[in-house]
């Protein structure tokens, strides 16, 4: 999961216009019929992570304002749920360790950021945009997804850096009390801020992508 997310992140951050063309035809199933699908030419295309620039789109049927609002709210609820899931994935192992041993283990409390972050990114990228289908019509899910991803990839990157800082700090902390705390604090702050930014931007960007 982490490898997929990291690959996705790396490829997306480096993707240019030429690569974007290669992604043509990899729209959602509901829209692919309107364009002639071409075989994916590289891994990034296969992952469907490229910019939507140049993607041929089918006509989009717009639902009513009420249903659009409902779709937005559903997406926002999905963001909140995925965040709670990620927080739970971090908290529960750390809490379980604490309950057994009686003290926190910095490495347990930081390494769990990795699967939690990977799951959060995966759910946000692949699953949450699909919620816009609940609004009815024929929304361009792929455009929504790509717009969101262009916005949230930076906080995803800073969160990943924060996780690395946390883990390195935790490893230092195990050697001597206090040695890794500054790095852990910086990492925690980075993860928290990035996570918040990720959620806000994902809601704003997906809404923008959905409406345009």
């Amino acid at each position: 999961m982490l490898a997929i997310a990291a690959t996705a992140l790396a490829l997306s951050l480096t993707a240019g216009p030429a690569a974007s063309d290669a992604g043509a035809g990899l729209d959602e199933a509901g829209t692919a019929a309107a364009s002639a699908p071409e075989p994916a030419t590289d891994a990034s295309a296969a992952l469907g992570l490229l910019s939507d620039a140049g993607v041929a789109r089918s006509p989009v049927e717009r639902p009513g304002a009420l249903r659009q609002t409902g779709a937005h709210l559903l997406f926002a609820a999905g963001v909140v749920a995925s965040s709670l899931l990620a927080v739970g994935l971090v908290y529960l192992p750390a809490r379980g360790y604490f309950d057994v041993v009686g003290r926190p283990e910095p490495l347990v409390g930081t390494i769990t950021f990795v699967p939690a972050g990977a799951l959060k990114i995966a759910v946000s990228y692949w699953l949450l945009p699909e919620l816009y289908r609940a609004g009815g019509g024929t929304p361009d899910i792929e455009a929504t997804r790509q717009t969101m991803w262009r916005w949230v990839r930076w906080p995803a990157l800073t969160a990943a850096l924060g996780v690395v800082a946390c883990i390195v700090g935790a490893a230092l902390e195990r050697e001597a009390f206090g040695r890794g705390q500054l790095l852990m604090a910086v990492g925690f702050s980075g993860v928290a801020l990035s996570h918040t930014a990720f959620d806000i931007l994902s809601i704003v960007a997906s809404s923008y992508g959905y409406r345009h």
Partner: peptide
């Protein structure tokens, strides 16, 4: 409620700590 610090006192100055 136990102390919420993500790291508890340990070596070399401290020998043991627990939030139970």
């Amino acid at each position: 409620m136990p102390n919420l610090s993500p790291s508890y006192p340990s070596g070399p100055q401290f020998d043991w700590s627990s939030g139970i």
